[in-house]
């Protein structure tokens, strides 16, 4: 069962990050040069793939599995809690939703103001697309490596991430600029919950915690964290609206 959760976590995390990367690539392609933007994206994906292939197997070979699980679990906890915190704050109305359309417009405006080079390749479009794909993709690489290595399913995690990249690429090409329609916050919350569940489980395993339901404990953790998150959103949104209303700000 935890395999399904792993695939879902990697797939959703990759989708969220790739939507953000796609916004940048679309902006670079629309305002500068499609060829250079696509070349930059391909170069970014190639470097990320090399990172997974280069780092993954060596970590398994040289680091004891107990230590690896503890370190990876702690990393997943920190990473997952950051995502979850952001999603809770957005759902409770304490933080503005991520607006891909606005980001796209701003990026296009900024890129159009940079003079184009006279030679064949547009270095600005290439660099912007490469940086966008690489930086957003680094988080995906970390999720793939951490979840893939602790579960001994690096290949499955990589394929899941690749499927997300292809899906977002195809959908992005079809819908073009309507990226704001993607329910990014809900996806971010789902990924955050899954990462925190895996992080708790693996850091616990690394410390010798005896989980009462073995691997199925991941699902129990997911359920407990989901309930706690829903409660937190309720309480925060109610408290925040209440305080603003009492002050006449709304």
């Amino acid at each position: 069962m935890s395999t399904y959760v792993l695939v879902a976590a990697v797939f959703l995390a990759s989708c969220v990050e790739m939507v953000e990367a796609l916004t940048i690539v679309l902006a670079a392609g629309t305002s500068r040069s499609w060829r250079s933007a696509l070349e930059g994206s391909a170069a970014g994906i190639a470097v990320l793939t090399l990172l997974v292939v280069g780092i993954g197997p060596s970590l398994v070979k040289y680091v004891p599995i107990g230590s690896l699980r503890f370190i990876i679990g702690a990393l997943l906890l920190i990473f997952g809690l950051q995502w979850l915190r952001k999603a809770i704050l957005r759902s409770a109305g304490l933080k503005a939703m991520h607006n891909e359309d606005q980001i796209f417009e701003d990026e296009v405006k900024r890129l159009r103001s940079i003079p184009k080079s006279t030679s064949g390749r547009d270095s600005t479009a290439f660099a912007v697309a490469f940086k966008g794909v690489f930086l957003e993709g680094l988080e995906v690489v970390i999720v793939v490596l951490t979840l893939g290595l602790t579960n001994h399913k690096l290949l499955l995690a990589s394929v899941s991430a690749l499927a997300a990249v292809i899906l977002v690429g195809i959908v992005g090409a079809i819908v073009s600029k309507q990226l704001s329609k993607v329910p990014e916050n809900a996806m971010k919350m789902g990924v955050g919950l899954m990462l925190v569940s895996f992080g708790s489980f693996w850091s616990g395993e690394g410390m010798g915690v005896h989980w009462p339901a073995s691997d199925a404990s991941i699902l129990l953790l997911l359920l407990a964290y989901s309930v706690a998150t829903a409660l937190m959103i309720r309480v925060l949104s109610w408290q925040y609206k209440g305080r603003l209303t009492s002050r006449g700000a709304v």
């Binding site: 915190r85 809770i88 925190v196 708790s200 850091s203 937190m232």
Partner: peptide, 17 residues
């Protein structure tokens, strides 16, 4: 341990928000 871990993780995110 397992219960303490889960409760303390929830407390951490609650403090942060």
């Amino acid at each position: 341990q397992p219960f303490a871990l889960a409760v303390l993780v929830i407390a951490t995110v609650f403090v942060s928000v």
